[in-house]
Amino acid sequence: MKITPHKVAGVFLLDRQLATKGEALYGERTFDGYRLWNPRRSKLAALLMKQAHVPLAPEQIVLYLGAASGTTVSHLADIVSLVYAVEFAPRVARDLVRLSERVENIIPLISDAAQPDYGPVVELVDLLYQDIAQPRQAEIAVKNAELFLKPRGHACIIIKARSIDVTAKPKTVYKREVKKLGELFDIESVHELEPFYKAHAAVIARLT
C-alpha cells in the first residue's frame, strides 16, 4: 500500500483512501497506525476527497458546531491542536462525551448552537466548522463567527439543502445561503459533495 501525504498536513492517502494518524476510536479500519476516514460518513472527508483547498493547519483551534457522535471530530482532532465540539442532541452527545474522555484535545459542549451559551468557555478560534441540519444554518454561522472567530479567520460551512427547503432545487438553496453568508464573510469557494452526499455543499469562507 502506498502512503502519500494529502495537501492538508496531517491527512494521508493510503492508495486512494483517506486517513489520519491515530488509534481506532469508533470502529473504523486501521492500517499501520493510520485510521481510515470514510468520505461517506464524514462531509469533511468528502470535501478533502474532492481535492478542495480546506483551510486546516496543525496549530489551529476549531469551533465545531453539530459534532453529533464525533466521527468527524475524532479525525479533525488528529489534524488540528484543539476542537471545541458543540452538540445539542443528548442521544448522540453521549458518544461525543465518551470520545472526548479518550482524546485529549476535544472539549465537548452540550449546547444549542443557535443560542450559544458557551461564551464564557470558548476562546477565539481559527476555524469555524459547521455541519448542522437546521433551516437557519446561515444565521447560526454568522452569530457564532461574530462571537468566536478570529479576525480573518476561516469558516467551513456545510449546507444541507434538504434541511433548508425541500421543495427548492439544491443549487438555488446554495446560492441563497451563500448570499446570506456573504454579508459577513468573503466567500472563497463552494463545493458540492456529490457523489458522497446528495444535496450537500461546503462553503469555504473567510471573515472580512
Partner: peptide
Amino acid sequence: YVSLLRAIMIQRAKERIVTAF
C-alpha cells in the same frame, strides 16, 4: 488550561445529558 477546561466541560456535559434523559 486545555486539560482543566476539558475536565470541567466533560463533567458539565454528563450532567446535561443526565438531565435531558
